[in-house]
């Protein structure tokens, strides 16, 4: 019967599309370094004062990891808000960490003092950036959940209301 055959063809196409979409979804999430749902790459750096700075220091906290640079105008625009987040959400378990992609540390020191940054900043490297899937344009911001997995990734200037909502959601999740 032609109608029955048409229905069967439509069902077959729908199943094929669903399988394909599922495969695409799995490949985009959690399988590559820096992908959402994947474990955040460990790092052991020194902050601008020479103190050790490791992601493992913040186990159990929500971490906002921001790749930025002093020459990056959109990055500079985000910093005052990030300072506010550290003040506002720090007591609830948020920790901001800045990774500068500047070629030279001097302007980073100057910027840190000028803007009275209240969270640790380290100078990044190509290797660290690659462990987060590559930072091939700035800014790039990751939110890491209390479980140590990447909960969100934002390439380019982040929409602050969206980020804030995600931070609050992660902070309210179980420890």
């Amino acid at each position: 019967m032609p109608t029955r055959r048409i229905v069967l063809i439509i069902v077959a196409i729908a199943i094929a599309v669903a399988v394909y979409e599922g495969a695409q979804h799995r490949s985009a999430k959690g399988t590559h370094p820096g992908a959402v749902d994947s474990p955040a790459a460990a790092f052991n750096l020194q902050d601008l004062d020479g103190k050790p700075l490791s992601l493992s220091d913040y186990r159990g906290k929500v971490v906002l990891l921001n790749f930025w640079a002093t020459w990056c105008t959109p990055c500079r625009g985000e910093i005052p808000q990030f300072i506010d987040y550290q003040n506002k959400y720090g007591p609830q378990g948020l920790q901001l960490v800045g990774i500068s992609m500047d070629d030279d540390a001097k302007p980073v020191h100057d910027f840190y003092q000028q803007f009275k940054m209240n969270y640790p900043v380290a100078i990044g490297s190509a290797g660290l950036a690659e462990s987060y899937g590559g930072v091939l344009g700035l800014p790039v911001t990751f939110l890491i959940g209390r479980d140590g997995r990447i909960a969100a990734k934002y390439v380019g200037a982040v929409e602050l209301p969206v980020l804030q909502q995600k931070i609050e959601s992660l902070l309210s999740s179980a420890r």
Partner: peptide, 8 residues
């Protein structure tokens, strides 16, 4: 910047 160039 060099850190971006070195990655790709």
């Amino acid at each position: 910047p060099s850190l971006l160039y070195m990655q790709a």
